Amino acid sequence: MLTVSESTMIRNLAFPFVCVLWLTYSSVLPVMAQKPTKPAPPTPEEEFRSIEGKWHVLLAHEADANLTDRPEYKNSSVTLSDKQLHWSSADGKTLFSAACNWKHVGKPAWDVDLTPTSDTKEQTTLPGIAVLYDKDILKISWRRTNLDKGRATNFNGNKEHTFLLLSRNPSAKPSGKASLVGQWQMLAALDDSFDKLGSGRRSAVAIFETDSFAAWKSSPSAKGSGYTGGYVLDNSHQPTRIKFNITFPPPGSGATPTPKDGMVPGILEFLDDDTLRLCYRESGWKSTDPPEARQYPEGFYSDGNINLWILRRAKP
């Protein structure tokens, strides 16, 4: 049994230890209670830096026509600053130039007013929109006629608008050995010259197997898709012809029904081994026309009868 003096000595030794332990624990408590802080969202100025500089034109669509199929627009580029949009040909000639006024309206999206460079005193401002669709893909569209209708509210390349699909990376020359088989990210999907992907749907994909496809899936893991069926390629023509055999939506049904036999004619072309444009005719024939009477698109554009997709091979 401990004596009184021994008990007192133990208490005197234990008290400082308990105090040190309490101080140590209490100093840790605030750190333990703090939640990890999220990085601050980028400022509008920081977001604008992500679109400054040089971009390469994948698609330039206006008045229901694809300008990039014209010689002077092939391999053209657009340079952006906070004050100007300058579009130049591959040999450096100016195709279009405009003073710009940008207004940040989203993450990352802008309203933009373009005042084309002109020798005349009258200056017209073209209201438009822009969005960084992916970190290296930019979409810009502006109204070019009927300005009283106001700012464009979607990405459109019809008779009233211009639509640019831009990439940070230039297209390399295709090797001639690229395969359609694989998973493709959908960058633009023009129907009646209107981009149905808009500013969202970045995860939308088209998946091609050896002889079947599933297109317009909202994501690679999504169960459903907008279109499914089979296809046959004909490389004896330039550009390559693709004959779709649509099985879903059921042929003969829907707002724009496919023929009851499901056959839809299209064309495709590799811009480089990992970038593809695909065009198909969705209407413009008589219901009594046999499959061989349905005309293939004569170019890569969109109008009331023809749809145009721009795709790039999905990154692993």
Rank of each mutant, 00 (worst) to 15 (best):
F163N: 06
P297E: 12
K223I: 02
G252V: 00
D91L: 04
K121T: 12
N305S: 15
K38C: 13
V20G: 12
F17I: 15
C279D: 06
F213Q: 01
R294M: 09
P290I: 08
E282F: 10
R294K: 10
L190V: 02
L29D: 08
V181N: 01
A33E: 10
S89E: 03
A172Q: 10
A152I: 00
K121L: 07
H104Y: 03
P41C: 11
S218Q: 04
L58A: 13
R277L: 07
L132C: 07
R202Y: 00
P36L: 08
H61I: 04
P251W: 03
R241A: 02
M186Y: 02
A206C: 11
I140K: 03
A314F: 03
F48T: 12
W184F: 02
S219R: 02
P250M: 07
E292Y: 08
Y227M: 06
R168G: 12
L85Y: 00
A65C: 05
R202T: 14
E46K: 14
E46D: 15
Y25E: 10
G262P: 01
S302A: 15
W87D: 05
S193F: 09
S218W: 05
N66Q: 15
H56M: 07
P291I: 06
S171Y: 00
F194G: 01
N101S: 10
L190G: 10
F213S: 00
D119H: 04
E62P: 03
M1Q: 08
R168V: 02
P170Q: 07
Y231R: 08
S171A: 13
D119W: 06
S219P: 07
P39T: 13
L114D: 02
F96P: 01
M186G: 07
L13W: 13
N169F: 09
V131L: 01
N75F: 05
A152Q: 08
L166I: 08
T240P: 10
W22K: 00
A65F: 11
L187S: 11
F208G: 07
S167D: 14
K35C: 06
L132Y: 04
N158R: 06
L190Y: 14
V264E: 04
V78H: 04
E209V: 00
T43F: 12
L311E: 09
L166S: 04
D91M: 01
S203V: 07
P30D: 11
S283N: 08
G176F: 03
S97M: 06
G299I: 09
G53W: 09
C19L: 15
A14C: 13
F15R: 14
R151H: 09
D113P: 02
K260F: 04
V31T: 10
A204S: 10
F248Q: 13
N305H: 14
N12W: 05
K38F: 11
R201Y: 13
I306A: 09
D274F: 00
K217E: 05
D261S: 02
